[in-house]
């Protein structure tokens, strides 16, 4: 199988320097193969490192909704800030845990059918940074505080990978990473030792992981644009427009149309 150069370099994730690769290349990788419909062509992680620059140009990065006058200045600033990656990575997790998170996200929630090829929403870095910011005001009593729980959970996955397969989580083929995630979510994966999470704790944490990922994805302006979501466009600062049409099949002109392959069905009926 031929592999695109961008994918080749980013598929190598040395434990000592996991973060910057994503900033440069993005995990979805903009490349000629993306357009060819070979969706899983970036999933291999067992390749040898090659430090080559990607040959594909960066994708257009500014979603149109950001320029709508149905957006308040404050909301525009909030959404725009999500277009760039947090400066220091990792901020909360250890390098090892960060690398595990980075390797599990595309298996948990691949975005290549939602976002335009080459768009990277820096999920790993944003989640890691969010773990150091204000949290959402509660946690399961049987889990340690969030940052600690995430570190322990990700290291648990890494240890289980090593115990079951003899290699670290990040080197597992996507299918095997997926199997471990499934085991975690259905209450079959955990470790009873210090600094790691037990089986019931891992199942609980899986909910937190899924919730955090969805927060990150659904609040991203590129995702909102691609899925045709108008939730940020409630009204501007001088005129608070709201919506005049709210029934089925009544998209207003200022609302985005879905562009993601996965979400075009509704719009195609208009």
């Amino acid at each position: 199988m031929s592999v695109c150069p961008a994918a080749r370099s980013k598929n190598w994730l040395p434990e000592s320097r996991p973060a910057p690769y994503r900033k440069r290349f993005g995990h979805a990788g903009y490349c000629i193969f993306a357009a060819s419909g070979r969706r899983n062509h970036h999933r291999r992680r067992t390749l040898k490192p090659k430090h080559r620059r990607p040959q594909c140009p960066p994708p257009p990065d500014r979603p149109e909704i950001l320029d709508s006058d149905h957006l308040s200045a404050r909301t525009r600033d909030i959404l725009t800030s999500r277009l760039s990656a947090p400066e220091t990575q990792p901020r909360t997790l250890s390098l090892q845990a960060y690398a595990v998170l980075d390797a599990l996200l595309p298996v948990l929630l691949p975005l290549d059918e939602i976002l335009p090829p080459g768009t990277d929403i820096n999920m790993t870095a944003r989640i890691d940074a969010a773990l150091s910011g204000p949290r959402d005001g509660w946690r399961f009593a049987d889990l340690p505080p969030d940052a600690e729980a995430w570190e322990a959970a990700l290291l648990t996955l890494d240890d289980v990978a090593a115990e079951q397969h003899g290699i670290r989580f990040i080197h597992l083929a996507p299918e095997l990473r997926g199997t471990l995630l499934d085991a975690m979510m259905t209450g079959q994966l955990g470790l009873d030792r210090d600094g790691r999470l037990s089986i019931p704790q891992m199942a609980r944490w899986a909910g937190d992981l899924r919730g955090e990922v969805v927060d990150c994805v659904m609040s991203d302006p590129r995702v909102q644009q691609a899925l045709g979501i108008s939730s940020s466009l409630t009204g501007g600062d001088t005129v608070f427009q709201g919506f005049t049409e709210v029934g089925p099949d009544s998209r207003e002109d200022f609302e985005p149309k879905a562009t993601a392959p996965l979400a075009q069905m509704a719009d195609s009926r208009e």
């Binding site: 929630l109 939602i114 990922v213 609040s219 979501i229 939730s231 996965l262």
Partner: peptide, 29 residues
């Protein structure tokens, strides 16, 4: 709103991979 809706979906299911992405892409429907 989409993130609240997605949170409910995420926490009440264990779907993963393309099926999870597809479920989220169903927001507008």
């Amino acid at each position: 709103m989409p993130a609240t809706w997605g949170q409910n979906l995420a926490r009440s299911t264990t779907t993963r991979g393309p099926a999870f992405a597809r479920a989220l892409a169903g927001y507008n429907r």
